[in-house]
């Protein structure tokens, strides 16, 4: 696989980076800033990228670190929490989550309940279809840790979906 041209990289993968950042908990108001940081980091690190490997896990690894740092900043964290609370009031009840968009909203809400380290593994594997060894490489964690996080994330996700749907534990 040839090394990607940077503009091509941007055009081909902006939607993926954007979606990944959102799934990792970046508030809509900060998606543009964090996507900017992801692509600048990618540009700086592109020499380290192995073109023989898929690029999405590599980009996700960068997005995960950018998103993690974003959430750690106290001011931003307060803002994110505020947005979450605001959204809570506007969201439909679990009983109404029956249509496709509402199913998507349900998934997104359930994702938010998963700690970010586990969520990253869950997103990469369950949504992006990335094999766990590639997940472990991209996130720089041992293989067993990746499997363990996936197991816990699945448990978290299912429990949150059931809670939102009003299913007794």
């Amino acid at each position: 696989m040839a090394a990607p041209d940077f503009e091509r990289l941007y055009e081909d993968h902006l939607d993926y980076v954007w979606s990944s950042l959102r799934r990792l908990g970046v508030a809509p108001a900060h998606l543009e800033d964090t996507a900017h940081d992801v692509f600048i980091t990618a540009w700086r690190k592109l020499a380290d990228y192995d073109p023989s490997r898929p690029i999405k896990p590599w980009l996700f690894g960068i997005a995960f670190r950018v998103a993690s740092d974003f959430r750690e900043r106290a001011s931003v964290r307060r803002e994110v929490q505020g947005e979450e609370l605001d959204r809570e009031d506007e969201r439909p009840g679990a009983d109404a989550l029956i249509h496709e968009q509402q199913r998507r909203a349900l998934v997104r809400r359930a994702l938010e309940a998963i700690p970010i380290e586990r969520r990253a593994v869950f997103i990469m594997h369950e949504l992006d279809g990335c094999p766990i060894p590639d997940v472990a490489t991209a996130l720089e964690v041992p293989l067993n840790t990746a499997y363990s996080r996936l197991r816990l994330a699945r448990r978290d996700f299912q429990a949150e979906v059931q809670r939102l749907q009003g299913v007794p534990a």
Binding site: E7, W43, S52, I62
Partner: peptide, 29 residues
């Protein structure tokens, strides 16, 4: 030259690949 929000953002280590291609040239468009 911290570009990321954090002073340094670790990036996945390059996978050891004997036949790894040379560092790609990037043409910011």
């Amino acid at each position: 030259a911290p570009v990321e929000p954090a002073p340094t953002v670790p990036v996945p280590e390059p996978v050891a690949a004997p036949g790894k291609a040379p560092a790609p040239q990037v043409t910011p468009s």
